[in-house]
Amino acid sequence: MARVASVLELIGSTPIVDVSALSPSPNVAILAKLEGRNPAGSIKDRVALSLVEAAEAEGRLVPGRAGQVLIEPSSGNTGIALAMVCRLRGYHLKVVLPANVSPERRQLLVAWGAEIIESPGAEGSNGAVRRAQALAAEHPDWVFLYQYANPANPRAHYTTTGPEILADVPEVTHFVAGLGTSGTLMGVGRYLKEHRPGVQVWAVEPPSGEVVDGLRSLDDGYVPPVFTDNGGADLLDRKVIVRLRESVEWTRRLTEVGLFTGLSSGAIMAGAVKCARSLGDEPATIVTVVCDDGWKYLSTGAWSDDVDDVVERARTTIYF
């Protein structure tokens, strides 16, 4: 694809690269899908376009009509991707963003014309979701796409990411991805299991649960409707937690195969390696995801500073 009419046509069709040099087993191949190649820089470009197109198809948004406002909670990539899509479509986007995200994310949102509404950093993404829900209820004229519950989120992966993976890696035996809204895992997982029933789907839980201390009680917890609506507990085969230190270490290890990635991709790679270890000598092909590139995370010092210092800072800044 050499010439396109709109940057939106560049979303998806990302390459997959063999990173088996990082595999702990000679019989287990690991392949990483490079979602940082999307035009706004992350896997969330697929979701943002899908959410907006679904709202347009339903008539909730009309391209070109003046005064249309969207609101969405995001710790970064969904907001950035939506900001780019909204800029092209002429919608005004308000992003509820935890106060303690890395400064590059804030700047990218501003670059594409989004308005930032801060939520308390100590409450993490949980707090951003609550604030967005409250604001959406106060302003029924605002369009709340709500990536956590919108079927257009997993559908983006069911219709694009999943088929791309199967076309490029027909021998896939395991899919390992991060658990946020669960859109990637539900969409890709369901597509792969329908076409390759033996495929195992592993979720990597980011270390944010260790960091978020703003809960008053466990009853303030949250499971995304996308997860429950898609039978997530039955769809997943395993779920592993990855620690902050492992995430930073594997983000660095990925540079050994030439990949400069965000920290969440380091966490997911750590999960893929755990998956590979669990297989022992069994031959397998793991497909995993690099969600975004490292540019937005340079201010974290993740590649240059002492690992202990990076881990300590990550306890107060949202890196995932």
Partner: peptide, 12 residues
């Protein structure tokens, strides 16, 4: 054994 609350987490 680690207990963790289910929250809206990262990757967003």
């Amino acid at each position: 054994i680690t207990l963790l609350p289910a929250v809206a987490g990262g990757f967003l």
